[in-house]
Every structure is written in structure tokens, then in C-alpha cells.
Design a protein around this nucleic acid. Structure first.
Lengths: 199, 199
DNA sequence: GCTGAACTTGCAGTATGTGTAGATTTGCAG
DNA sequence: CTGCAAATCTACACATACTGCAAGTTCAGC
């Protein structure tokens, strides 16, 4: 089952467009970048750009989606008898990178922070990832794919990652992101109980 | 502290534009509606529309934001010694309406379901509400406004509402929405533990 | 009433996004 | 290898979305 040339080429173009969009936006500011420039950087016609993405915002964020799709893949690869939350902690750690978070990803989340116009599309991207997670979780637990439990678990975990990342960015990336996320996941597993203010 | 005429007028225009956008989109389909039509329906120039919203999608979703802002207001009005989750359950029930969910709101979420292009903006709107909730929760618990706990609680609750609503829409609005949301909140407070499959 | 600030508006110009039709490339069977 | 069918890319045309600017117009406070 070798993926045909056609398919590979398409994927390559998509990636090309995504990274070009991100690169240009980081370098010159989102507002200064036009679709024409992105298309040119990816060596493709402007019309073709719109065959892949419906806006430059979507393209900028697309790279992140692909990165995060591997979260679901990794999750599916964990042993089925491992507690779900354990699996989730492991895969999140894994995809955060051994040493530091991938700098492409950091550039992206920083860009979103600086450009509120990107937020809607960032959140939509998260929703896609959330959906992938939900599907895997449903298989894993043997529940229906539209059951409340896998859906909410996926949503809550994505929320934890989002909130933790935001906090991490806000604190000038001083803490270890993995630790912050773990803390957030702890809160989830303890039912969001009010933490004692004197530990 | 009577709000000046100016301010009231502005709010009125904003509301006018939002409801006009929603109305037209429901009636004719989102794609068929132009900003010009929305502006005309609100008796305002197209240029003015863009002084309020940066796209028609944002306008369509704005009505929902305002409705949901009252969630935070209601929450702030609950007694401070009531357990947070209890307060949340109460205010969600309250704002769902005594008998049935407000039909304007239902129309809106249905529209988003039918038009994926609206999803990003819907999620951004949720993020705004989430922020309001977070602020109130922080005050309530006496924690810093950027603390992980209020932030994650707000995010998780919004996620619960979103997932529950989606499920409710998917099941042809047969169940009681309030019950579905309660179920989702239960999952949150029990730490998302895997529900026993034989109750 | 007068004055400054806030809001609205028209206009001009650029960028976004889509339908269509024809060229180009790829997959595949003969 | 050849040629056909389907997928993809591209150019062109066009409507709509959005923004900056320089007026008008309306409101708040003195």
C-alpha cells in the first residue's frame, strides 16, 4: 500500500503552504502577509492556495493541526489496559519533545497570542484534534463514539492543554510546560476540587 | 449611574446588527447573506457594520455571546459560601430557561452545526464567555485571576456545556438539555472516571 | 449654546474568496 | 509504451469583504 505519487504530492503542497504561511507571518506580521505571497513562497498559484485552505489564518494554524494529529496516533499505540489518564500523560509528554517543546510549535502559539484574529482558527484546529482524540478514546473504552464520556474527556484534556499552555506563555515560558500540563490534568482527575490554599 | 444615551444607542445598534445577521442567515442561508443586507436590515451603513464586527460570522455569533454573558452575571450573584459546582449548576439551569431553551439560541447553535465556517467564531465566542467565568471564579475563590484552577474550571465547564449541547442536537433534541449538561458536570466532578458499564 | 469627543458615513482602494473552463499531470489498462 | 479517464493546477473574471481616511453628524458637559 504505497501511497501514490499524487497523494504524496498533495500532502507536500499542503505542508509547503502551511509552513510558508507560518514563516511569513512570523517574519513580517500576519497583516502584512498576503495569500499571493504565501502561494509564491510555496511555488503554486494563488488559486491553488484556496484549493487547500479557505483563508490564510487557516493555513497558519494548519501546521499545528498536523503536529497534534500525532497525539491521537500515539494514544492509539498505547497498551489498551493502561489507565486512560496515564496514557494521556505519557503521550502528551512524548509529543512535547524530550528536551524542549518544538520551536515551530512555540512560534505558532506565540503568533496566535499576538494576533487575536487567529484565535478562532486556532480553536477550530483544537476542535479537530479533540475529535481525533475522541474517536481513539471511544475505541479504547468500547463506548459509542458519540457517548458523553469520551467526548468530554477529549474536550477536557484539550482544555487542560490549552489553559496550561496559555499560562506557560504568560509566565514567559519559565516553568516546565510538561509540569504545568500535568498539574492541570491532576485538577481534572481530582474533579476540580478547590485546592487547599495552604499545602 | 444612568448609562448615557450614546452608550445605549451603541448597544442597541450592536444588538440590531447581531439579530439581523442571525435572522437573515437562518432564513436564507449564511452564504446568501451579504454584509450590505445585514446593514440595511439594521438601518445602518455597511461601513458602520465593520465598526462593530469584523465579519458577518462574528455578527451571527455575537447574539449568543451576549446571552451567555448573563451566565457570569448570575454566577457572581450567587452566595459566596455555596460550593462552586452547585452555583454553576444552578446558573446554567437558570439561563437555560424555565421550560425550554430560548429558541433564538437554538436557532444559533443549529446554524453553526449546518455551517462549519461558523465554528471557529462560535468557539471564539465561547472563549470570551469562558474568560468572564474565569474572572468571576477567581474572585469567588480568592485565587489569582491567572491561577490554573479558575482558568481550568471555567474551560472545563464550557467544554461540558459544548459537548452536552452537541450531543443534545445530535439526538434531535429529545432529551432534556439540562439533564445532559448535569450529566456532563457529574463526569467532571468525579474526575472523568470511567463510568461502570452496568449501572 | 458652545466645544470637544465620539459616532456615522461615503469613497477609494486592496485583498479575499469562488465559479468556470481549459491546460497539465497522474493512474491504469491494454 | 500508448492512450484514455480522472484528478489537479492554473488563468481569468467577478462579486464581496474589509480598511484608511476625511468629511459630516450627534451627544456630553460646561
Amino acid at each position: 500500500m504505497t501511497t501514490g505519487l499524487r497523494e504524496r504530492k498533495k500532502l507536500r503542497t499542503r505542508r509547503e503552504l502551511g509552513t510558508a504561511a507560518l514563516d511569513l507571518a512570523v517574519r513580517h506580521g500576519l497583516a502584512e502577509v498576503t495569500v499571493e505571497q504565501i502561494a509564491e513562497a510555496a511555488e503554486v498559484s494563488p488559486r491553488t492556495f484556496f484549493n487547500y485552505f479557505s483563508s490564510k489564518e487557516e493555513a497558519v494554524v494548519a501546521a499545528g493541526v498536523e503536529r497534534a494529529r500525532d497525539l491521537a496516533d500515539r494514544l492509539a499505540a498505547r497498551p489498551a489496559d493502561e489507565p486512560v489518564m496515564t496514557s494521556l500523560r505519557v503521550v502528551v509528554r512524548e509529543s512535547l519533545g524530550e528536551t524542549a517543546p518544538p520551536k515551530e510549535w512555540v512560534a505558532q502559539v506565540r503568533l496566535v497570542r499576538a494576533n487575536p484574529a487567529l484565535l478562532p482558527h486556532q480553536l477550530a484546529a483544537h476542535a479537530q484534534i479533540e475529535h481525533s482524540l475522541r474517536v481513539v478514546l471511544a475505541e479504547r473504552t468500547g463506548l459509542a463514539p458519540d457517548d458523553l464520556h469520551p467526548a468530554l474527556t477529549a474536550a477536557a484534556v484539550m482544555a487542560a492543554i490549552r489553559v496550561a499552555t496559555d499560562r506557560w506563555l504568560g509566565s514567559d515560558e519559565h516553568d516546565d510546560l510538561g509540569d504545568v500540563i500535568d498539574e492541570a490534568l491532576d485538577l481534572l482527575t481530582t474533579g476540580l476540587r478547590h485546592p487547599s490554599r495552604a499545602p
